[in-house]
């Protein structure tokens, strides 16, 4: 088995474009799902009575249905319903955000609920109002406690961008498929793709770990 790396070096721009799209998609859907997840979590905690079961249905549905199915449905079926045509990247962004926001909402909720009730009692004893307690005492601790889970979600986000290849988004996976098909050197191309993903993901998980270890005591009451 001879390993001919020239296919990689000859087409590095093509592959680099894919890396750029992966990072852009991961960053955009990551940020959007953090925001949407926050709104959903708030709706569950403080919204009207009908909001809670609606949110639970949404979250559990996203836990039940594969990302592939969500992306494929968003790209192929949604345009039929709405009459709009959608770029693959946009469809992937919408699908990934909808899927990830459900998990983000759960992380927010679990984080807030994990702060000791004694902290709230101590704050009440000082005479603080409920909003002050949430803003100054509970949320800061909750955010620290959520960090490992969000780190994990970031890792999942990056990995899930690869599924967008199925709806022709030109990220790493898709670019690799195209190149592998044209060059008839799938092993080199896919091995390179594995290396790239590993080099992106490994520092992310390690980095989140490191950061958490330094700030963990700020969340431990």
């Amino acid at each position: 088995m001879n390993f001919d790396l020239s296919v990689i070096t000859d087409h590095w721009r093509f592959l680099a474009y894919g890396i750029g799209v992966t990072i852009a998609l991961a960053a955009a859907s990551g940020a959007a799902s953090l925001a949407l997840g926050f709104v959903v979590a708030l709706a569950r905690l403080f919204g009207p009575r009908w909001a809670k079961p609606a949110v639970v249905l949404y979250i559990d549905s996203m836990r039940a249905v594969p990302v592939l199915v969500v992306l494929v449905w968003t790209f192929f079926a949604l345009p039929i319903l709405t009459g709009l045509t959608m770029l693959p990247f946009v469809a992937a962004l919408i699908g990934l955000t909808a899927h990830l926001a459900a998990y983000a909402a759960e992380i927010y909720r679990a984080g807030v609920e994990s702060v000791r009730p004694g902290q709230t009692r101590a704050s009440l004893a000082l005479g603080m109002s409920r909003t002050q307690i949430l803003r100054r005492i509970v949320m800061p601790q909750a955010l620290v406690r959520m960090l490992p889970a969000f780190g994990s979600l970031l890792s999942v986000t990056i990995k899930d961008t690869a599924i967008a290849s199925v709806i022709a988004v030109p990220e790493i996976m898709r670019q690799s498929e195209t190149l592998a098909g044209q060059s008839f050197q799938p092993i080199e191309v896919y091995s390179f793709a594995m290396l790239v993903y590993f080099l992106i993901l490994f520092p992310v998980t390690r980095g989140v770990d490191r950061i958490y270890r330094r700030v963990a005591h700020l969340g431990r009451s």
């Binding site: 990056i158 690869a162 599924i163 498929e177 993903y197 590993f198």
Partner: peptide
């Protein structure tokens, strides 16, 4: 463990498809 937790599964599937036969 570190390797397979840091790779997308879909890539693994493709890679297995091409590498395993060889």
């Amino acid at each position: 463990v570190e390797l397979f937790r840091n790779l997308p599964l879909i890539l693994l599937v493709y890679w297995a498809f091409y590498v395993l036969p060889i």
